[in-house]
Design a protein around this nucleic acid. Structure first.
Lengths: 102, 102
DNA sequence: CGTGTAAGGAATTCTGACACG
DNA sequence: CGTGTAAGGAATTCTGACACG
């Protein structure tokens, strides 16, 4: 009836912190490094989707292995691990990019 | 990997209010009338699932038609419109109840 | 580079209650 | 019965910055 539950950005940062085990500081920092892109409410509070949370858990694992954020960013883009985006929208555009760049 | 996105209670009341168009007061009142049952964080703030939101939209429609909360409660229980619960857990128990009471 | 923390302010949420009806 | 609102307090979130490394 609505959108995909997985993609809807409705979860605030404190809850994301609890679920992922990351500190609020870390989550904000990963945004600064363009590893996640929450929505903002009219008053500026961040809202995340379940998909974002999964992305953050991938990031957390990479960080544990000592991978730097810049490296993680590359990998995320290369592998297209953000499957939700690929599955749900602009699939054509992304495919086009794949055909071009790879 | 995790649970069903639809059932996980992670959305705070302000966001639920925006999505459903109901006032925060109304949402709390429907809880008081046992029409929804959010989780509570350790510090007492309510957390709702997408399923709860759908439930609330059903309630909103009923209320617009002038149906009283007590009546809505009966209908919800009778029709088992909370499909997510039925689909995802204690299906056996609920079936048992159906066989008993109907 | 990645993350902690104290700082000050703004916005959220909570409960119990009074109001109207 | 269902919902608005003012009240006071507690907890959340935000940003920019300093710290360590």
């Amino acid at each position: 009836m609505e959108d995909s539950y997985k993609l809807k950005k409705v979860i605030s940062i404190g809850t994301v912190s609890e679920i992922t085990g990351l500190s609020v500081r870390q989550i904000r920092y990963y945004e600064e490094r363009n590893l996640v892109e929450p929505d903002r409410t009219s008053k500026g509070t961040r809202k995340y989707s379940f998909s974002d949370i999964e992305q953050l858990m991938i990031i957390a694992n990479q960080r544990e292995e000592g991978v730097q954020t810049t490296e993680i960013l590359r990998e995320l883009r290369k592998q297209g691990s953000n499957q939700s985006v690929r599955n749900n929208m602009i699939r054509g555009q992304i495919n086009a990019q794949f055909n071009k760049k790879n």
